[in-house]
């Protein structure tokens, strides 16, 4: 049986989350930003798993499965958008894409 305190586990998830956040804020490349979002999603899932174990309930794991499906959709759409953006602007620099209108 794992006897690491639950606080430590959540701290681990939190560190991962904030690393993802830093990545999202720092990077200008859309692919890296999407990766950072993945990291944040994953750490949120991790907290659910920790909670599921802590309370001894299956619901947390169910939530992780939902997060997984949402992530899958998000990645599919996000990558398709990245492809379109690259096709259209010939760059992945998010700062270059600040025209929120139809050309």
């Amino acid at each position: 049986m794992l006897s690491v305190p639950v606080e430590t586990q959540i701290l681990f998830a939190g560190i991962l989350f904030f690393l993802g956040m830093i990545g999202l804020l720092v990077r200008r490349n859309l692919v890296f930003m999407l990766m950072s979002i993945e990291i944040m999603f994953n750490s949120a899932g991790l907290v659910f798993i920790i909670a599921a174990r802590h309370w001894n309930q299956p619901d947390g794991q169910v939530m992780f499965i939902f997060i997984l499906s949402v992530t899958a959709v998000e990645v599919a759409i996000g990558l398709a958008l990245i492809l379109q953006v690259y096709h259209h602007f010939k760059t992945l620099d998010v700062d270059a894409i600040h025209k929120l209108k139809d050309e």
């Binding site: 999202l24 804020l25 998010v94 700062d95 600040h98």
Partner: peptide, 13 residues
């Protein structure tokens, strides 16, 4: 309202 996504994210955070 400068249209820069990263700026919006920073203000979120």
């Amino acid at each position: 309202q400068n249209g820069k996504l990263r700026w919006y994210l920073l203000t979120f955070a």
